[in-house]
Design a protein around this nucleic acid. Structure first.
Length: 431
DNA sequence: TCTGGGGTCCTAGGACCC
DNA sequence: TCTGGGGTCCTAGGACCC
């Protein structure tokens, strides 16, 4: 038996926890570069603001809506996520942190009434950190996700489901008749693992509700779709097919990519940008104790604009797998020099570290002339300084030194303070 | 008329997730 | 003026090997 705990409108809820004046108002949090709406309050959803909607189009379409838009403050959300996860862990013996705002909790061995227990954990999260959650319970992860959807919908749109399923919903506790009724009332698009393409294909086969999908023959699902959909069907039928990962697996690739605040045509600022991206990616790589075998660098123009388009990526092999920022940056710079073409308005670039391996596996090697001294301690010191004094305290000079003035920096015009992670931003309560 | 069988590796692209 | 970022897994096709 599994539970899925999920923060409602998570980024917006994090902002509201520190600015209660945002309650009951339409609020959206924007992606990097203030581009798209990536989190919406219920009021904003009611106005028709879609997930991922370009913000400039929303403003154009709803000029009088008085929507509060905020730049994403990922430092704050990450910290709030840690707090949420540690409280949610109290629900059962095992926890899988699935994303910044969601975790699965294994409930095997938990005694007593599960709904009761989940309701208490939900209350605790709300009281301690101010984040409203939905909790779904089911015999597989896919069913727990579905239960969570029902719990949140019943809460947000009264009448969509029975009110007693709001906030906490245990599908395994429903009578068979009521379960079928709930599945028949739910669109197949709400199922975890069914995306827009498969939903359309299913619709053509007459499968429109979850109840229809549960009745599908898994073998047929595999033949007509893929092994992925077969697993989804079996999970809906109550057979666990998706493993519970209680320890986070090491990443197989690590990326750092950004859209630019404005178009870039020259090579030097692109070199600055990919230097910065490679440094960031290197930090993440060392944090998980891995080394990379290849570095991919890409650049492209904006597909949303008219004009000549250009898109190119190149993979640079490293002489040996490494986590040394100097090596990673060198590879990224060689990469950007390779893919750069003058005369195009570049909108985005990125660096991806590929072929990651555990850092403690070494291939024996003859001591060749150019084999650098062990720079592990240098990297560790660099990471420590950047953690202590803030991102960018210590960088490689090719990242550029003009701070936020750099031509390629992203726009972030409406960011709230780092309330919980910077002393000077800490909220002050007056007696 | 008629041209094997089995395998690996790589890349690109699709689909999905949050 | 203006459209995010970071992942995973699967599949198909080509090159290459014996």
């Amino acid at each position: 038996m599994y539970a899925l705990v999920d923060g409602n409108n998570f980024y917006v809820s994090c902002e509201r926890a520190f600015r209660p004046s945002l309650k009951n108002r339409p609020v959206v949090v924007l992606s990097n570069n203030d581009g798209c709406a990536i989190s919406r309050s219920n009021e904003a959803k009611a106005l028709g603001v879609a997930m991922g909607a370009p913000w400039h189009l929303v403003k154009q379409k709803l000029p009088d809506a008085d929507i509060v838009a905020l730049s994403a403050n990922f430092t704050l959300y990450g910290d709030m996520s840690n707090r949420l996860m540690s409280i949610a862990a109290g629900l059962g013996p095992e926890q899988e942190i699935y994303s910044i705002d969601e975790c699965f909790v294994g409930l095997d061995g938990v005694r007593g009434d599960l709904v009761d227990r989940a309701q208490r954990v939900r209350e605790r999260i709300l009281q301690w950190i101010g984040i409203p959650c939905g909790i779904g319970i089911g015999t597989t992860k896919t069913l727990a996700k579905l239960a969570n959807h029902i719990a949140k919908s019943a809460d947000r749109r009264p009448g969509s489901y029975p009110i007693e399923l709001a906030r906490v919903c245990n599908l395994a506790a429903l009578a068979p008749g009521q379960l079928t009724e709930m599945l028949a009332a739910t669109d197949v698009r709400e199922v975890w693992g069914v995306g827009p393409k498969n939903a359309e294909k299913l619709r053509a086969l007459g499968i429109t509700t979850v109840a229809d999908l549960v009745r599908m023959d898994p073998v047929m699902a595999r033949m007509k779709f893929s092994v992925m959909l077969e697993r989804t069907v079996r999970e809906l039928q109550g057979m666990p097919c998706i493993a519970f990962e209680d320890a986070p697996a090491a990443k197989k690739e690590i990326a750092c990519t950004r859209s630019f605040g404005r178009a870039i045509t020259d090579l030097p600022p692109l070199i600055e940008a990919v230097t910065e991206f490679a440094l960031r990616a290197g930090e993440k790589l060392r944090r998980q104790g891995s080394v990379a075998g290849n570095v991919l660098t890409f650049v492209h123009t904006s597909p949303h604009k008219v004009g000549p388009q250009y898109s190119k990526a190149v993979t640079m092999p490293l002489r040996r797998p490494t986590a040394d920022s100097g090596d990673l940056v060198n590879a990224a710079i060689r990469g950007i020099r390779t893919v750069y073409r003058p005369g195009f308005k570049m909108a985005k670039a990125g660096v991806m570290l590929l072929d990651l391996q555990p850092g403690d596996v070494h291939q024996a090697e003859l001591p060749l002339g150019d084999s650098a001294a062990d720079r592990g301690p240098l990297m560790a010191t660099m990471d420590k300084l950047n953690q202590r004094y803030g991102k960018g305290a210590l960088i490689l000079a090719s990242a550029g030194t003009a701070g936020e003035q750099r031509a390629w920096s992203m726009r972030q015009e409406m960011r709230t303070p780092h309330y919980t992670t910077q002393w000077q931003d800490m909220p002050v309560a007056f007696a």
